[in-house]
């Protein structure tokens, strides 16, 4: 009781003490700061990785599907074989010739020897949906029957 009295008396002379709610946060402040720092850093790492993946996803849209050379397993079509049911109405002649050159070098060599009229015929047949096997046969046929 005496100490309580002294306490009350002494209390009047002291500057304003922080209220209990501020006092309870003080010791926790470093932990809070550290936690905030950790999640900020982790977030920046994750966003950096995510940013790189986004850039890759955007960049891959610029790439055309392409094969070079030929798969040589007899009877096995290349993985990206044409679907004969789909007409290539939107294909340009340059794209067709590039495709022929990239996949069937031999046939492309024969194709180059054809006159312009025959080349146009071959391309028209491709645009109407002929598959590459049929196109190659047509090239040979045109070459032999010039």
């Amino acid at each position: 009781m005496r100490s309580g009295f002294v306490y009350r008396h002494f209390d009047l002379a002291l500057p304003h003490r922080p209220t209990p709610k501020y006092r309870s946060i003080g010791p926790l402040l470093p932990s809070v700061l550290l936690t905030f720092l950790f999640f900020s850093l982790a977030g920046s790492v994750w966003s950096a990785e995510g940013g790189y993946l986004s850039e890759l996803a955007a960049e891959v849209e610029k790439v055309e599907e392409q094969t070079l050379g030929e798969a040589d397993a007899p009877g096995v079509a290349p993985a990206s074989a044409d679907d004969p049911s789909k007409a290539n109405t939107d294909a340009s002649r340059e794209a067709f010739e590039l495709k022929l050159r990239d996949r069937y070098m031999g046939s492309y060599g024969f194709y180059k020897r054809l006159p312009e009229r025959s080349r146009q015929e071959v391309f028209e047949e491709y645009r109407q949906g002929a598959d590459m096997k049929q196109i190659r046969k047509k090239i040979i046929s045109r070459l032999l029957n010039r």
């Binding site: 850039e55 055309e64 798969a71 040589d72 397993a73 096995v76 990239d102």
Partner: peptide, 28 residues
């Protein structure tokens, strides 16, 4: 399936398209 890995045999062949580019955005 068996795939034959060889060079393109056309001496006039030139690479075109995306992988013929000489520069890309850096970073990344």
């Amino acid at each position: 399936r068996s795939v034959k890995v060889q060079r393109v045999q056309d001496p006039d062949y030139q690479l075109r398209g995306y992988f013929a580019k000489t520069v890309r955005k850096c970073p990344p």
